[in-house]
Simulated assay, not measured.
Amino acid sequence: MTAVGAIMWIAAFPVISIYAVFINEVLLGLIALPSKVVSARPGAKTTLLIPAHNEAAGIASTIARVRLVLPSGSRILVVADNCSDATAEIARANGCEVIERFDLERRGKGFALDFGRAHLASDPPDCVIILDADCIPDEGTIESLSGSALYYMRPVQAVNLMRAGPDSGPIVQISNFAFMIKNLVRQRGLVRAGGPAMLTGTGMAFPWAIFEGLSLASSNIVEDLAVTVELTRNGVRPLLVESGRVWSNAATAQDTLTQRTRWEHGFIGTAIKHALPSLAAGIKNGQLASFRLGLHLLVPPLALLFSVGFLLVTTLFVLSALGATAMPAVVLGALMSTSLLLLLIAWWRDGRDLLSFRAISRIPLYVLWKIPVYLKLVKGAETEWVRTKRPD
């Protein structure tokens, strides 16, 4: 092997490995997980904890729709966090218990959840379900989450999806499809391979005995991901309740870009910090869940994954045309093609309601649309908890 060939393999190997992990997760996630229906425990006390920051425009609608599927005896606690609008007043007027928090130095959803937990500690529920203030659970989801969390005595996560409006353009549809691949298809694959369900910040339930010990008080904008890492390292593997669904209305294209910027910057920052340590901990301790979590964190968001893959495979093919070995380019190209085929199958099985056939042709534009997200990451990651504007 020539020196140039060796350099090509060294450059290609990390990306080839990441695509192999992605293919493994998607392939394992194409089929629904076997489900065991666990009913809510008779007499169990469940609290829906809703952190809300300037949600006056939609909090009444959320509460009304949640009440339609809320089991009797359940409690709703809204944490109005650093609000400059009427969120607290509207939530109270709609029959919710509300506490308000004002602390401009300690801002973020994690601090809001910690504040709510401190309030609950005097009369703790058996189960706490965290729900975003713009998120609606399907009928039966609250019972499934509470029942599963208390039956298994583990954190559990519902499938968290975005619902596009009738006027949503192809960019928003593609973004929602990518969200589904992450929160449904890859979740299934990760759990089936022995990894933890990734907590997504909403539609997640905790037995109080676990919730009271979580490290919540932080400004981390992906506090759910940090909690997943913490729990898995401590030997507590969150579970996926696939029968549970929680939905949020998709934002406009511009607001979706803002939202994805925060999420993906937070994910990439956490992945850089925790992926390799999780892998190492899994190998050292013989802990499959930590090992699989580390592999999962190595895979970047879809647009970045395929942008890096396309740039690298193009470079490798150019070098092979100049006389270098073609094998690195062939292997990477084959893995990218396999990934695209699996995504097409996943779309056919689970994504046709989210992404129209006509919108598929706009995927290259979606990748270009995401480039500013990654350019901003070079300048500095987003760290603020900012409410995403959504249509009614």
Rank of each mutant, 00 (worst) to 15 (best):
V78I: 15
A121W: 09
E100P: 05
D138Q: 11
P137S: 01
G116D: 05
I130P: 09
A88K: 01
I130Y: 00
L77N: 10
A86P: 00
R106Q: 04
C83M: 02
P125T: 11
G95K: 06
F111P: 00
D114P: 00
R101N: 07
R101S: 10
A121Q: 14
A80Q: 10
I130V: 15
E143Q: 11
F115Q: 13
F111M: 00
I129N: 13
C135A: 03
T87Y: 10
F111D: 00
A80R: 10
K109T: 06
A133K: 01
G95T: 03
N94K: 13
E139K: 07
F115C: 14
D81H: 15
V128I: 11
I90Q: 10
D85K: 02
A118W: 13
E143F: 07
I99C: 04
D123L: 11
V79Q: 09
D85Q: 07
I129F: 14
G110P: 06
A93M: 04
I76T: 10
V128D: 07
P125Q: 13
A133N: 08
C127P: 00
D132I: 09
E139H: 08
V78R: 02
V78D: 15
C127S: 14
G116M: 09
L77W: 14
R101L: 12
I136M: 04
S84A: 10
C135P: 09
A118Q: 15
A93C: 01
L113P: 00
R75E: 15
G110F: 14
A88G: 02
A91T: 02
I130R: 01
D126C: 06
E97A: 12
L104G: 01
E89M: 08
D134M: 10
A112W: 08
